[in-house]
Simulated scan of single mutants.
Amino acid sequence: MHPQPSDHAFELGRDEGPEPTVFLVDDHEVELDLMQRWCQRAGFDTQIFGDPLELLEAIDVDAVGCVVADLRMPRISGLELQAKMAQRDLVIPVILVTGHGDAENCRTAFQQGVFDFIEKGFDSVQFIDSVERAIRKNQRERFRHQVRREARSLLETISKREHEVVLLLANGMPLKGIAHELKISVQTASKHRSSIFTKLNIDNEVDLYKLLLAAEVSLEPEVEQ
Rank of each mutant, 00 (worst) to 15 (best):
Q4S: 10
F10Y: 08
T21G: 10
L24V: 08
V25K: 02
V25T: 10
D26E: 03
D26N: 05
D27Y: 11
R37W: 11
Q47F: 07
Q47C: 12
P52W: 10
E54Q: 11
E54L: 15
D62N: 12
R75H: 13
I76R: 00
E80M: 14
A83I: 06
K84E: 13
M85F: 13
D89N: 15
L90P: 00
I92P: 06
I92Y: 07
G99E: 03
C106G: 12
C106T: 12
Q112G: 14
F117G: 09
F117P: 00
I118V: 09
D123F: 15
V125W: 05
V125S: 07
F127N: 11
A134I: 03
R136A: 15
R136S: 13
K137N: 05
R144Q: 08
H145D: 12
Q146G: 02
L155D: 05
I158E: 02
S159D: 11
K160N: 09
E162Y: 02
E162L: 07
H163K: 10
V165W: 04
V166R: 00
L168V: 07
L169G: 07
L169V: 01
L169R: 01
A170T: 09
N171I: 06
N171R: 07
I178E: 02
H180C: 09
E181F: 08
I184N: 02
T188P: 01
A189V: 14
S190D: 10
K191N: 13
S195P: 00
I202R: 00
N204R: 04
V206A: 12
L211R: 00
